[in-house]
Design a protein around this nucleic acid. Structure first.
Length: 467
RNA sequence: GGCGACGUGGCCAAGUGGGAAGGCAAGGGUCUGCAAAACCCUGAUCACGGGUUCAAAUCCCGUCGUCGCCUCCA
């Protein structure tokens, strides 16, 4: 079995072949930190977290870089609005985003470079591009000369002449071509700056990623990721800069996640239809969000609304249902039941890998987990003991973990301290039921439910769990 | 206007040539004092119109529609 990945560059699924055996270099574009991160950012980070976890599951060691753009126009404007230092502003949002990712159970990237920490590399790269004729200084700015790059437009499937006619950009007549983009921007009064051969200024947006890649991962990488709104111009420009300099293919696989849709539109800072990560997590768990992602293709748009969240929440509960213990007084299941469970375990694991190997088809993989859930619940209903269920439950936990799901047990805030008292109330209620004092037994059940303890009667006894 | 993606049951969605996954919701049933959970059962002429093929949700052409990019964006 080979892993296949959809490559934006070729618009095809391709066999995954790394530059170096069993090692993956992956660079994912992170956010520009001028504001609170929203769940669209969470989606992108989580998609690549899932990809990383799966690659690791498949035996690769993954060098995972995610950058922060911590100096740019928006940050400067926002800092001026608030009357604070732009670097402090950025720093604050970086920490906030890191906390968000931890709360979302997204693995820490191996390296987290920042634009402001790569200024030397950036300047050196720009100098080399100027020397090689791919860039030209202009009144303290430096621009990339797109006409010099014969391949320009390859990633986004455009050509310079088409864009020229359709572009809505305000043309800067000083530039040789309207599509030439800034590598270095001269500083206006009051703006943060670094000294450079072209005067005080700061890096353009695209060059930082090229420089960070070159510095931390090398001239060539395996996977370059980000949201599909970055394909043009950002990633197109990264390719232009890096390949013009190295003469080698930059990234082997360009991987792009789809956009989160809220109210039929892409969630974005400029439209203002935002749900912050913090806001989402104050009402829902990270697993709920992850289920939403897993249930659809990472490349397509993701519909976000109250109903899809609720559906994910119920689906998650179903996964949890399989992890519940055997029925009280279960005597062990008959041979055919256990054989069926064993068969399903093998089918689920194989199906899981087959699905994920096909361009990270997480919806297909999730379906396999649900099949396993059904088998486990069937076995439990057929009287399987905890020992009977345990291997299948372990497999379910393992495969869920590969997708980054926690499936953590819900417990009371105070730990297990309440357990004996809950047991006592259950015993009491059972006595009331024996006496057919149902209004009283229901009162116990209802009051416990209000406290978050769910009682479930069965013919073999009573089980309970935290809601 | 240019480039790209997509349109599958009430909802979210897999599936890209030969049996239409899975989840949620709904209805029926088993269990049960009731409830809940779990389990069983029930459902789709795959946007529309042509074409290729023994065979099309899947390939080709056209139409309609949705979304993204073309300006900062995950």
């Amino acid at each position: 079995m080979t892993l296949k990945i959809y490559n934006t560059l070729t618009r095809k699924k391709e066999d995954f072949q790394t530059l170096e055996d069993e090692k993956v270099r992956m660079y994912v574009c992170g956010p520009t930190v001028y504001n609170k991160a929203h769940i669209g950012h969470a989606m992108s980070a989580m998609v690549f977290d899932i990809i990383r976890r799966y690659l690791e599951f498949r035996g690769y060691s993954v060098l995972h870089a995610m950058n922060f753009t911590d100096v740019d126009d928006k940050i400067i404007h926002r800092a001026n609005e608030l009357g604070v230092d732009p670097f402090e502003l950025a720093e604050g949002y970086i920490h906030e985003f890191e906390d968000d990712l931890e709360a979302l159970n997204v693995l820490q990237p191996t390296i987290k470079p920042r634009a402001t920490q790569e200024i030397h590399t950036i300047i050196a790269m720009i100098e080399d591009l100027v020397k090689a004729g791919f860039a030209y200084p202009l009144n303290g700015d430096v621009y990339f000369r797109v006409r010099k790059d014969a391949d320009y437009g390859r990633l986004s499937g455009r050509n310079l002449d088409d864009m020229r006619s359709g572009a809505r950009i305000e043309v800067d007549n000083r530039k040789e071509d309207p599509l030439d983009f800034a590598l270095w921007k001269s500083a206006k009064p009051g703006e943060p700056f670094w000294d450079s051969p072209w005067g005080p200024g700061r890096p353009g947006w695209h060059i930082e990623c090229s420089a960070m890649n070159l510095h931390h991962l090398g001239e060539q990488i395996d996977i370059h990721g980000g949201g599909n709104d970055l394909i043009f111009p950002h990633h197109e420009n990264e390719i232009a800069q890096t390949e013009s300099l190295t003469g080698k293919p930059f990234a082997r696989y360009w991987v792009h996640n789809g956009m989160l849709q809220l109210g039929g539109e892409k969630m974005s800072k400029s439209i203002g239809n935002l749900v912050s990560i913090e806001e989402f997590l104050s009402h829902h768990t990270s697993d709920t969000f992850r289920i939403m992602l897993l249930n659809s293709s990472y490349r397509g748009p993701l519909t976000y609304n109250e109903e899809t969240v609720a559906q994910a929440e119920r689906g998650l509960e179903r996964l949890h249902s399989a992890l519940r213990p055997a029925l009280p007084e279960a005597a062990g299941a008959a041979e055919p039941t256990l054989t069926a469970l064993q068969t399903q375990m093998e089918a689920a694991e194989a199906g899981f890998i087959k699905a994920m190997d096909d361009d990270f088809n997480s919806a297909g993989a999730l379906a396999q987990l649900f099949e396993l859930v059904r088998s486990i619940n069937q076995a439990r209903a057929a009287g399987a003991s905890n020992g009977d269920l345990q291997p299948a439950q372990t497999l379910l936990r393992k495969l869920s973990g590969v997708l980054g799901l926690c499936l953590e047990e819900k417990t009371s805030q105070s730990g297990g301290g309440a357990d004996p008292f809950i047991q006592l109330l259950i015993e009491l209620r059972q006595e009331l039921r024996k006496e057919k004092l149902y209004p009283l037994s229901d009162l116990v059940r209802n009051r416990l439910a209000e406290l978050g303890v769910i009682l479930e009667d069965s013919k073999d006894g009573v089980s309970w769990r935290w809601q």
